[in-house]
Design a binder for these strands. Sequence first.
DNA 1: GAAGTAACTGACCATCCAGTTACTTCACTG
DNA 2: CAGTGAAGTAACTGGATGGTCAGTTACTTC
Lengths: 200, 200
Amino acid sequence: MARDSRTTKSSLLRAATDEFAAYGIAGARVDRIAAAAGYNKNLIYVHFGSKEQLFDAVYEAAVQEILEAAPFDAEDLPGYAGALFDFHHAHPHLMRLSRWHSLERHGVLLPVAEKANSAKLRALAAAQGEGKVDAGLPPHLLLALLVALAGTWAEGGPEPLGELVGAAEIAARRHAVVVSVGRLTRPGAPGRPLPGTFTS
Amino acid sequence: MARDSRTTKSSLLRAATDEFAAYGIAGARVDRIAAAAGYNKNLIYVHFGSKEQLFDAVYEAAVQEILEAAPFDAEDLPGYAGALFDFHHAHPHLMRLSRWHSLERHGVLLPVAEKANSAKLRALAAAQGEGKVDAGLPPHLLLALLVALAGTWAEGGPEPLGELVGAAEIAARRHAVVVSVGRLTRPGAPGRPLPGTFTS
DNA sequence: GAAGTAACTGACCATCCAGTTACTTCACTG
DNA sequence: CAGTGAAGTAACTGGATGGTCAGTTACTTC
């Protein structure tokens, strides 16, 4: 095996991603990560410093990947939600990482995520201003709801015992997400307009 | 301290609930639980058998509590979602327990939860049949989305860094959940009727 | 090909931690 | 009040685990 610290580091990172996604921070084993990557445990400490810092590196990479995978489009929110759904379905371990992070690190947002988030909020507010998105709810609430909908069946949600989930069911879920986001965001509230502000 | 195995057991259970909610199964420490309850570690093994079984007991109790706290009403789904939201806000540790469970135990539903769930599905289907709830989505998908919406800001969701969440924001979130569920479930789909089935 | 350096390894260690064992204390009963 | 069984405790065990370090290997430079 050629000696290249870059590939070594990325091998370790990949193995660590799997391990942390499967077991969380507390449950992950440094030895297992090293063994899975086919390197000595010490290299983890050389490259990343500690188990915790290794998790940080893993998590940051995962966040980057998620952010890139589903580009935000304030004018097609159902499409965005669908893309998110697809991504979660294709990469369940990233959603798991995110859930571990929120539980074991009290969900503090990374600067990258924070930045991406406020960009989304601006775009959403603009779309609402132009009447392209229903303005009944403030952007930050609407965005959160939308993301929650897209992640409803992402790994970490309760799954019926043992039942295998077929392609038809997946398609149905995706459809449900897309339809629901459409209903939440399509301009012109159904029935009466929403109450003026959001103070219950 | 009077010697009563029932109170001892429930003290241990309460301490364990806090510990597991805070650290999950892998992160929880049996010694800490015993110390917090003010009893000897061995009593945990006497009463519960093992750390894993202790978690099971904790989780089952939590599920019971959640099920009782928010009675399902298929004819007032926004109200149900609101009640769920309130419960999550009042008892964030129970939601955390639930998330730990789904991550560390791959989210296998307890029999109690499974039973309660199918009762809800039947009620929902009936309400849809009577035209009281929009029938554009099958009950199991609708219910999942609804629960996801109610739990959007439950502990475990991403929280903006350091920002304190005031009462007004909480009220706004609650309102957003209630309004959204209303939109998803109010009979008579906005705009055109939904496509016949849910095969994407 | 000698000198120097970065990548890498195996063995080790202090500590942690779930679970066990041997013992003591208490409440109650006949 | 002696005896008994349940409740409770302190001390211990053995395996796992995060982290360290002296030393080796592969590669580069001169």
